[in-house]
Write a protein that binds this DNA or RNA. Structure first.
Lengths: 145, 145
DNA sequence: GTGATAACGAGAATCATTCTCACCGCAATC
DNA sequence: GATTGCGGTGAGAATGATTCTCGTTATCAC
């Protein structure tokens, strides 16, 4: 689903599957997100959409769309940028992110081995788990050269 | 160091130990933070400092102080509030936070068992680890009654 | 004490995000 | 085919946390 080769229809299906009404603007935001291998801010996406063929889309609409898609779990939001949120079209299963501090490349990582630790911590303090976020930052091999 | 019984001198020592110049305002921010069992935003701290005995301290100073203290690792910053940062006077060793979604009680947790997983993930993707954040959210036992 | 330097306070400026509101597209209805 | 209802949209204003500016003041080494 991530590949940029996805068709308009694929995006429409994706939206429908998540109970989101299909509109031209929402499809455009999705298409733009699919082209971005890493993550992008609402501002960035808006500027790109504007430049690309002068699509007229409102900044507020981009924010509304991203917030809706995030709520419906179609996109992930990352907070690693302090002061603004980044959005990313992600796989549909729960996962976390490993981000390169230099080139901002994003790698999805699964919970393999983490869940045991999580369970233990929640149990130890008698908490009922509702959510957890893990963000790993490092330097990728390319950026260390 | 966390207890509210800490003296002015304790705070001054704490600042000095972290290469931070001691000023009246910094001591006041620390004192206010020490009284807060969980975390507080810059705005909140500022209002409290204002109300308490009409201390005249500028909002910008509170921000500058918190940001300096955070850089010097005297306080921790938590981002669980989306849109604003929370600050907290913490222990001096690396740790993470378990926050109650309802009452915002904060519990410090250590890395016991987590570091292995971290190392494996960074190694697997050939990243040089520079940082990581983990925030666990749940409902504490009191809030489930 | 004195001077260099860092910190302060107040208010203006910034910047991401959200709100307002008039307008538009589309589907169901007449 | 015209009408009506309604969610979605665009533009710009509003919001709110944070940062900047700059004249003033405190701190510290000498």
């Amino acid at each position: 689903m991530k590949p940029a080769q996805a068709t308009e229809q694929d995006f429409a299906d994706l939206l429908a599957r998540h109970d989101v009404q299909v509109t031209r603007q929402r499809l455009e935001v999705l298409r733009e997100l699919a082209v971005e291998p890493n993550d992008a801010t609402a501002q960035t996406l808006w500027k790109r959409l504007r430049e690309r063929s002068g699509a007229t889309i409102g900044l507020a609409t981009v924010y509304r769309t991203l917030s809706l898609l995030s709520e419906k779990r179609v996109v992930d939001t990352l907070a690693h940028n302090e002061g603004e949120l980044c959005y990313r079209l992600c796989g549909e299963t729960h996962h976390h992110h490993l981000v390169c501090a230099n080139c901002h490349r994003v790698i999805e990582i699964d919970e393999q081995g983490l869940s045991d630790w999580l369970e233990r911590v929640f149990a130890k303090h008698d908490f009922l788990a509702t959510a957890h976020t893990v963000e790993l930052t490092g330097l990728c091999s390319d950026c260390r050269k």
